[in-house]
Design a protein around this nucleic acid. Structure first.
Lengths: 149, 149
DNA sequence: TGCTCCATGTCAGTATCCTGACATACAGTG
DNA sequence: CACTGTATGTCAGGATACTGACATGGAGCA
């Protein structure tokens, strides 16, 4: 009796609930970021750059879980709006380090607050221990999935 | 000190890890379903129909977390492949109940086994209690997010 | 009955993200 | 040095999902 042989009702499937949570979170973030005219990938890009300035396109793509091509479009949009600056020449290889501008930093601060509010809403009623357990359990799932591929 | 005022490193943000897990699961399912020539939404549609025959397009869309329009395309593809049948006339309102064909049921059985394998891989090393805790915690998050919108 | 409101199925257009492909730049190895 | 392998940035094309819109069918109410 080490493993069930059917998934059971979708409502009880881990994968189903995981997707449902991801969709709900995505929608909530979209809503929160709309006043700032930022999409979720755009925000994620800014947040990553705020924490680790000088990241390249490919590194940002991996961090945001999109392809290099998609991140390229995001970065171009942010560049045109003056929120980030990309180095004109590559200091190493073909990598073009990107950094936040002052305007980008201001946008990020506002967006970060909005997203924090969403996360706070999401985790309402959860003890810190339970949040930590959620993080750790998800980390195990991620590791299990990525090891197999 | 009831709430932190910054998100902290993205690696520790619940939303970030949640998205990461969802992406990893999506990729793993795509890989597992590829031999059967099924996409994740197509599989989700079949699974839902297997558990609750006669669902309408709109009901399926809500269950799979896509729009009616997207589900319409999915359903049309499955219909052309002979995996599902849609009622020609609406027995009530405009709803066109959909059901699995024999071929659809066979496809579903194979797909369900593949997805179960993925879920088993994902949850490897997690005690039933921990899986249950994950489900319950995610349910709280979903409720919190949906109440606010 | 007539009116309003809501849900459904569908068409059209747009946006987003992906896969495939190519040239370039560096590291490692003979 | 030359060669191979890997990683990056970018272009082109296609797949997928979305928003907006419309017509239809039913429920509720005066």
């Amino acid at each position: 009796m080490e493993q069930q042989e059917t998934l059971g009702p979708v409502e009880n499937a881990v994968g189903y609930v995981l997707k449902q949570a991801a969709v709900a979170l995505r929608n909530a973030m979209d809503l929160a970021l709309r006043p700032l005219h930022l999409t979720v990938p755009q925000y994620a890009c800014l947040e990553l750059l705020g924490q680790r300035p000088g990241l390249s396109n490919a590194e940002l793509a991996r961090g945001v879980f999109v392809t290099r091509q998609s991140m390229n479009v995001v970065l171009r949009g942010l560049d045109e709006r003056g929120l980030v600056t990309r180095a004109a020449v590559a200091p190493h290889g073909r990598e073009l380090p990107t950094e936040l501008t002052t305007a980008g930093r201001e946008h990020l601060d506002a967006a970060s607050a909005a997203v924090l509010a969403v996360q706070t809403t999401m985790c309402a009623g959860l003890t810190p221990a339970r949040q930590q357990a959620l993080l750790e359990t998800l980390a195990v799932c991620i590791r299990n999935l990525n090891d197999g591929s």
